[in-house]
Amino acid sequence: MDPQTIGSIGENRTVGKLKQISSDELYGIPLKNVYLPVGDGRTSEVDVLFVTQKGLFVIESKNYSGWIFGSENNKTWTVSYKGGRKEHFYNPVMQNKSHIKYLEKFLGKNIPIFSLIVFSDRCELMKVDITTSSIKVIHRKDLIKRSQRYARSTLMFSISS
């Protein structure tokens, strides 16, 4: 299977997991492959945008198996597969920071925005160093719990006209 198809499967599973949330604490609508204007006619693609009454969850979905290594400030991360094969991929934390920057440019900064990096349950997060408390790197199986935890700790917002 090609990487784009594998990625799309992961995004669909992430959306499916979000659709399972049925709580007064957190209700939302997951949107897949949201294109944000960045200027000069270019766009930036958010894998999954979860629009809730608590804010926007910007989700970078990674559908890898294997061992994951990375740091918040490294340009690339590594997935190591059985047999010793390794692949490098662009830092998903940096991807989401970019998405959030464009969202804030487009919508303003009065809407809470949360960054979630969601990995397949088939991978192992071996050494992932994140120091910024607002950035979470999790497995898909923890998505509902983590999202609801955000909801409990965040006041509802309103957009005034």
Rank of each mutant, 00 (worst) to 15 (best):
P3Y: 12
Q4H: 14
I6Q: 15
G7T: 08
S8R: 15
I9A: 08
G10Q: 06
E11L: 13
N12G: 12
N12P: 04
N12V: 02
R13F: 07
T14G: 05
T14F: 07
V15P: 09
V15I: 14
K17Q: 11
I21L: 06
S23M: 02
S23N: 11
L26T: 00
L26P: 00
Y27E: 05
G28N: 01
G28W: 00
G28D: 00
I29Q: 06
P30L: 05
L31Y: 11
L31T: 00
Y35P: 01
L36N: 02
P37G: 06
P37Q: 06
V38T: 15
V38G: 03
G39A: 12
G39V: 06
G39L: 10
G39P: 10
D40T: 04
D40C: 02
G41D: 11
R42I: 03
S44W: 11
V46H: 04
D47I: 04
D47K: 08
V48S: 01
V48G: 00
F50N: 00
V51S: 08
V51K: 04
Q53L: 02
K54I: 01
K54H: 08
K54Q: 02
L56K: 05
F57Y: 12
V58I: 08
V58A: 10
V58C: 12
S61D: 10
Y64Q: 04
S65D: 12
S65E: 14
I68S: 04
I68R: 05
F69D: 09
F69V: 08
F69G: 05
E72P: 12
E72H: 11
N73K: 15
N74W: 14
T76Q: 15
W77R: 12
W77S: 09
S80G: 05
S80T: 13
S80K: 15
Y81H: 15
G83F: 10
R85P: 00
R85C: 00
K86H: 02
K86N: 06
E87D: 10
F89L: 08
N91Q: 13
P92F: 14
M94T: 13
K97V: 09
Y102W: 15
L103A: 07
L103I: 10
E104T: 04
E104L: 03
K105H: 14
K105Q: 14
F106D: 08
F106A: 09
K109W: 05
N110V: 01
I111V: 14
I111S: 09
P112M: 09
I113L: 09
F114S: 03
S115Y: 08
L116I: 08
I117S: 12
V118D: 06
V118F: 10
V118G: 06
F119A: 09
E124D: 12
L125H: 10
M126P: 02
M126Y: 13
K127D: 15
T131W: 01
S134V: 00
I135N: 03
K136R: 15
K136W: 10
I138Q: 09
I138L: 08
H139N: 13
H139Y: 14
R140G: 03
R140A: 05
R140N: 13
K141S: 11
K141P: 00
D142H: 13
L143M: 08
L143W: 08
K145R: 12
S147Q: 04
Q148G: 01
Q148T: 11
R149A: 11
R149E: 15
A151D: 02
S153P: 00
T154M: 05
T154W: 04
L155A: 09
L155E: 12
M156N: 06
M156A: 02
S158E: 09
S158C: 03
S160N: 07
S160R: 06
